[in-house]
Simulated scan of single mutants.
Amino acid sequence: MWPDRRLIELFKTEFPIVLAPMAGIMDAELVIAAAQGGALGSLLCAMITAEKAREQVNIIRQRVAAPINMNFFCHKLVDADPMREAGWKKRLKSYYQELGLDHTAPVNAANRAPFDAAMCEVVEELKPEIVSFHFGLPDPALLKRVRAAGCIVIACATIVREAIWLEENGVDAIIAQGAEAGGHRGMFLTENIAEQPGTFALVPQVVDAVRVPVIATGGIADGRGIAAAFALGAAGVQIGSAYLRCPESRVTALARSALAQARDDSTVITNVMTGRPARGVANRAMREVGPICPDAPAFPHAATSLGPLKAASETLGKVDFTNLWAGQAIRLGREMPAAELTRALAGGALARLSQMAG
């Protein structure tokens, strides 16, 4: 049995496992499969329109009778800085020339929108059981509307101070994101990535600081990691990288190959790809321009100029400019259906917890 059942009772899922919302490489199919396996399926909505979010949730509802977590970003919108954009284009000019692209041609702006009134209306209409937030919480008026729709609210913290702030602002559970985690840091009260604790240093300190259930995330990809998180006081875990190579994910064959070859030392935290610190498998752009580059425009504008480079490079069979967001445990990922993987993760954790109890 699970030593802490608060998350299972809160979410009404079979297992205290949350499928991490992952930008650009997942849709309803992976959410459905993870939910069928007993996890809480999460749909990242920061890069899709309100209409697309509605469509995806309806697909999930038709296929599985399980709770849904709709995930949103809460970053502060920053206007593009023409001078900084020009400097960034200049920094990337040699890559444009190498790939035969015109670096002066207009490019579609990167689409990563913070939670707003339009998305709040979608939440009120669809009433997902859980709504999660990254980079803090939305405007209090919007958050009040989410709560009035009957949604459980969870959010991400990267330091204890953020966890305390989230609890003071009424969240029902806190995701404690360690430095090992793939993708964007959920930080919002700090900008210093050098100070972010690892998962197993962060989790017990957050557990001691708040009363709500804590969900550990970062570097957890098998039953051993899940059991360890529970031993440190977590009530559940959020797992992303372990699911990347499942057949239901939308990871391209090219990226899938790169992820399969990744080792424990393959990932780095970079701001080159989007303008905000995120962990991924190092590619050419990260190595040669970063991994941290002061020239990168603010989030999400750095991604705009990289778009044409990514597309052109991928046509040549390369991932030189492709986001390969993944955590430090990427090597533990497996190629198996997501429902089967979820059950394997839970089974492995329960076996390890039973050994520890015995």
Rank of each mutant, 00 (worst) to 15 (best):
L142Y: 02
V237P: 07
I68H: 04
E195G: 10
M286C: 10
V107L: 02
I152T: 15
A234T: 10
E124P: 04
D320C: 07
N323D: 01
R6H: 05
R147Q: 06
I32L: 05
L232S: 06
D320V: 04
G170M: 05
A221R: 04
A298M: 10
G223E: 01
F230M: 09
K318R: 15
A23W: 00
R224L: 11
A20V: 09
A46F: 00
A65F: 00
F321L: 08
S257D: 14
D102V: 10
G317N: 07
D102Y: 03
V268Y: 03
A258V: 14
L143N: 08
A201N: 13
F11R: 03
H134N: 13
S241V: 09
G182N: 11
L101C: 08
V210E: 00
T104L: 12
A234M: 09
R161N: 14
A357T: 11
L254R: 12
I174A: 04
A349L: 13
L143M: 13
V289F: 04
P204W: 05
A109R: 14
T49F: 00
S266F: 03
A33C: 08
I220N: 02
R276C: 02
R6Y: 02
A53S: 13
A339R: 10
A209H: 03
Q328W: 01
R331Y: 01
I159Y: 00
S313Q: 06
L353T: 11
L44N: 10
G219W: 01
E195D: 14
E29H: 12
K144L: 05
R211M: 05
A255Y: 00
L309S: 07
E168Y: 01
E195N: 12
R54L: 05
A351N: 12
P138T: 12
A181C: 14
V237K: 09
E340D: 11
V131P: 01
L7I: 15
P138W: 04
A298H: 09
A34I: 09
N192P: 02
A194Y: 07
I215T: 06
F11Y: 14
A181G: 12
A20R: 09
C45S: 14
A326E: 01
R145L: 03
V251L: 13
G150I: 11
R276W: 02
L189E: 05
R91S: 09
V289E: 00
P204Y: 04
E121C: 06
P128D: 07
E121D: 15
G186S: 10
R224V: 06
A148N: 10
F73Q: 04
P21S: 11
L44G: 15
L19E: 08
E121N: 14
M22I: 13
